[in-house]
């Protein structure tokens, strides 16, 4: 009988974080994601204090290596790293030796050689962070790779949803727009399915994925082409940015038709649950995927997503930098 308390005493540290890299949400376990969200709650509280900074990662160097433009992801990671007391080096493709033809692996090796512990990387090629992770002992956090994955965005979206809704079991999440090119949609779907949510991808048939559709325990994302139907009774409506830089000709008939069929506007949002959450990973093309009334309306969580992003990225930097290495 007295053995029970001792066994419990040994397990108070909960799940151990052992991952060197964060590349996508697909291989994370539910327990690992729980740990990220729990840690992020603590980090959010740190951000609300009079002194909103700690020195836990003093002596840790974080590099942001962005081969593609970004405002919020890069800034969010920089703020997160500094709030934990880490030093931050920012590199972009323009203005670095990448312009002289330095390869990704060389760049990553150089960063490691100058003492970088964690590299936050965004790249226009799907899979680039996976390649980098195999060639360095520094940790790689995927800040978005091509049309493949954007795990930190998915985790901050999940954090925001769980924060508002509690359990996501059986909740209906509609992700609408250019799903085919969306690393946000894919990484979100993996995480949401693991949390028991029903995920619907909605968009024109040409912008829906045909292969590699996220599936967890036999549950698969539902495909829909009619937003007026798909949005009915939704708990969460997540609109995606129409990625003009990734559009090839002929995928959408015209911008005007896309707007008329897939824009989330007040009339469509009324078909969802009365207090449905409206989300968007940003930056918003206002007047295209979201009408201005909806983007700035009472149901919009777009600003909460950005604020939560700092807390979730602090949690990830902390777990990865202080991970179990045994």
């Amino acid at each position: 009988m007295l053995d029970a308390p001792l066994a419990e005493a040994d397990s108070t540290h909960g799940v151990a974080w052992t991952r060197k890299d964060l590349l996508d949400t697909d291989t994370l376990t539910r327990a690992e994601i729980d740990l990220v969200l729990q840690t992020a709650r603590g980090m959010r509280e740190v951000r609300s204090r009079p002194v909103s900074k700690v020195s836990t990662l003093r002596g840790t160097t974080v590099a942001t290596l962005f081969y593609e433009q970004s405002t919020r992801t890069r800034a969010s990671f920089e703020v997160a790293a500094k709030a934990l007391g880490a030093d931050v080096v920012n590199l972009t493709a323009s203005g670095s030796s990448v312009e002289k033809g330095e390869t990704l692996i060389d760049t990553v090796s150089t960063l490691e050689a100058i003492g970088t512990d964690v590299i936050v990387m965004r790249h226009h090629r799907s899979g680039a962070p996976f390649l980098a992770a195999r060639h360095t002992s520094a940790s790689i956090i995927n800040g978005g790779d091509g049309t493949h994955a954007h795990p930190t965005q998915a985790l901050l979206d999940l954090f925001t949803m769980v924060d508002r809704l509690g359990s996501l079991e059986g909740r209906k999440v509609v992700i609408v727009g250019d799903v085919f090119h969306s690393r946000v949609a894919r990484s979100n779907a993996w995480a949401l399915l693991k949390y028991g949510a029903d995920v619907t991808f909605c968009g024109p048939p040409t912008l829906l994925p045909r292969y590699f559709v996220p599936t967890v325990d036999g549950r698969r994302c539902t495909m829909a082409t009619d937003l007026d139907e798909a949005i009915e009774d939704a708990d969460v409506v997540m609109a995606l940015r129409l990625q003009k830089e990734r559009q090839r000709h002929g995928l959408i008939p015209s911008l005007r038709e896309y707007i008329s069929r897939y824009q989330v506007n007040p009339a469509r949002l009324r078909k969802a649950k009365p207090d449905a959450l409206l989300m968007h990973p940003g930056p918003v093309n206002e007047g295209i995927e979201l009408s201005p009334e909806v983007a700035h309306g009472a149901q919009s969580l777009i600003e909460a997503q950005v604020a939560n992003g700092v807390a979730v990225r602090m949690a990830l930097l902390y777990l990865i930098a202080a991970r179990s290495r045994v």
Binding site: H13, R41, G42, L84, A322, S324
Partner: peptide, 19 residues
């Protein structure tokens, strides 16, 4: 959790909860 002096030396990151 964030103030411990053994963060990098422990087997696992200390749990972090809101104060």
């Amino acid at each position: 959790g964030l103030y411990r002096d053994d963060v990098a030396r422990r087997g696992a990151p200390p749990p972090v909860r809101p104060s």
